[in-house]
Design a protein around this nucleic acid. Structure first.
Lengths: 231, 231
DNA sequence: TGGATGATTTTGGTAGGCCATATTATGGTA
DNA sequence: TACCATAATATGGCCTACCAAAATCATCCA
């Protein structure tokens, strides 16, 4: 423990967040949670009233969300909540497969038991949330599983990319985890990732991570095309 | 021949770009080209004067660049040009390797000769630029090589990610391509990618693309540590 | 010389206004 | 009644001006 860690321990947690960041989080959350639906117009002056901030802030927030891909800007018409089409969702899952596969391989090659242990912890949380029918918890702990995967090998840039893409498919994620059998299949697939990592099997971890995302993608495609996923 | 096609043929190409987008491009270009150096403060009112636009615009632009990772915001001190450290650069190259490898594999599996032909065209442009010592041209055509790789298999999301990350290491790229032998080695590695794609060899294309980025990464690391030593 | 104090700079945020375009009423004419 | 031209409204894009709080710099005094 160095001085930094020591002073950090006693440092009072300031709000620190600027109003803009607060507003950004609020609007992002509103979109991700479905309060604003895809295609909904985001009228600047209305948002000002709803958020209680000035247009300056709202505009900066919209610009930020635009570059995140959550908001689309129609020329001469203004911002709307971005609509995710079939193909784009597929591409996002594909990228996640590549990056999460990469991270899983790196974890395995680390030969550090602490990694598998940390992942197991997240996995337990996920299973418990499934048992409790706490779907928000499933999502949160799944995210934290993957965050561990990336942060254990110090890949915060890749984690940032995955995170950025993930918010865009959040509503799909919340549908895929609710499908039949996903409460058994999902954790089983993730357990295979952890197993491979514990064995130090890079190729296996890579493949298992790819498989997990790929199956989620397949379910998402099924959900998107309207028919109910049956497994 | 419908009315749309007819009127589109004669429609005057309006600027269409909003002032904000113009300013965004200007500032991004100024950072990427090195006019603003890493660590430089970006004082809002100074930028207003230099760009000839209002603070509203400047603030939106800074926010946008912040979310792109080109600008960092120090609390209560304001925005500066983001500094790229060793490790982050390595991570960016690693992500590019994963995604470009993926795209190369997809191209190969397409078994479409037109893809290899298009890539060869870009490759010729790169070689010509090297011969002419036109380093800006080398960078531009290298980008277009990779853009082709992604767009030929309709992976515009992945291309967007790669593009986003690439601007952050632009100055490194312009240094790596000037290294000894890179004018021979670089195109040779890219030719291997094209060959594998032409043969329909997915694994080979994946590996060749990975190798190319990996060697660029190695050079970048050398440049970075060399500069740190001499600076 | 060193430190307190005041002035300046700069960000974070607000208010409100102007203009151009796009949509929507509205009303008059065939 | 159907339809078109026109006016009203809504909204984005952009601007100026202002304020408060924090950081920085200059100054002056002990």
């Amino acid at each position: 423990m160095n001085d930094d860690a020591h002073s950090a321990a006693i440092r009072v947690e300031r709000p620190a967040k600027t109003l803009r960041e607060l507003a950004l989080d609020k609007v992002r959350e509103a979109i991700v949670s479905g309060y604003f639906r895809p295609g909904d117009r985001l009228v600047e002056r209305d948002l000002c009233a709803q958020l209680g901030v000035s247009r300056t802030i709202v505009r900066e927030v919209l610009r930020h969300l635009e570059s995140e891909g959550l908001v689309a800007n129609l020329p001469n018409k203004g911002p709307i909540v971005a609509q995710l089409n079939h193909d784009e969702a597929k591409q996002i899952y594909e990228i996640r497969a590549a990056l999460e596969g990469m991270a899983a391989r790196l974890c395995a090659e680390q030969h550090n038991p602490a990694i598998a242990d940390a992942l197991d912890k997240s996995l337990e949380d996920i299973k418990r949330s499934y048992r409790d029918k706490d779907m928000a918890g499933v999502l949160a702990h799944t995210s934290s599983f993957y965050q561990t995967l990336f942060s254990m090998v110090d890949r915060h840039v890749a984690w940032g990319v995955v995170n950025l893409l993930t918010v865009r498919i959040n509503h799909l994620r919340s549908m895929t985890i609710k499908t039949q059998n996903r409460d058994v299949q999902g954790p089983a697939q993730m357990a295979r990732i952890v197993d491979a990592i514990r064995r130090g099997d890079g190729d296996g971890a890579y493949q298992a991570a790819m498989d997990h995302v790929t199956s989620a993608s397949a379910i998402a495609q099924a959900v998107l095309s309207g028919r109910q996923a049956t497994d």
